[in-house]
C-alpha cells in the first residue's frame, strides 16, 4: 500500500500546507479539490488515509464519507475529517457516518502529523 495520503480539500492554500507537512515526514500526498468524483478516486486506488474536508464543491464531505463506508473496497479506509465546521452537531454526524477521527481547522501542524501517523494503515 505504501504511505499514500489522499487529501480532498478545495482550498488550495490549505492542501498546499498539508502536502508540505506530510511530504516532509515521508508521506506520498495526493490532492483532489472536488467533491463530485472524490469517492470514485478513493475507490479506484484506496490510500493509507483520506483527509476529508466537509465544505466541498459539488458534494458534501459527509456525503462522500457515507458512500465510502457503504462500498466494500473503501469500508476500512481510515478517514480523517478536517473541517472549519467545528460544532458538536458536525462532530456527531462525522462519528455516525464512520469518520475515524475529527479535527477542526485551524489545526496545529504537529497534531495533524501525529494523527496521520496514528491512523494511516501502512
Amino acid at each position: 500500500m505504501g504511505k499514500r495520503v489522499l487529501v480532498i480539500e478545495d482550498e488550495a492554500n490549505i492542501s498546499e500546507a498539508i502536502r508540505f507537512i506530510l511530504s516532509r515526514d515521508g508521506w506520498e500526498v495526493e490532492i483532489h479539490p472536488d467533491g463530485t468524483d472524490a469517492a470514485s478516486v478513493v475507490t479506484a486506488c484506496p490510500p493509507s488515509l483520506v483527509i476529508l474536508d466537509v465544505m466541498l464543491p459539488g458534494r458534501s464531505g459527509f456525503d462522500i464519507l457515507r458512500s465510502l463506508r457503504e462500498a466494500e473496497p473503501t469500508r476500512a479506509v481510515p478517514v480523517l475529517m478536517l473541517t472549519a465546521k467545528g460544532q458538536a452537531a458536525d462532530r456527531e454526524l462525522a462519528a455516525r457516518f464512520g469518520a475515524t477521527r475529527f479535527m477542526t481547522k485551524p489545526f496545529a501542524n504537529a497534531d495533524l502529523l501525529a494523527a496521520v501517523r496514528d491512523l494511516a494503515v501502512t
Binding site: E11, N13, I14, A17, I18, I21, A84, G86, T104, K105, P106, F107, A108, N109, A110
Partner: peptide, 12 residues
C-alpha cells in the same frame, strides 16, 4: 476559520 487555517499552518 478557512484563511486562518492557512495562516496558522504556513506560519508554523
Amino acid at each position: 476559520r478557512t484563511p486562518m487555517t492557512s495562516i496558522r499552518a504556513f506560519s508554523e
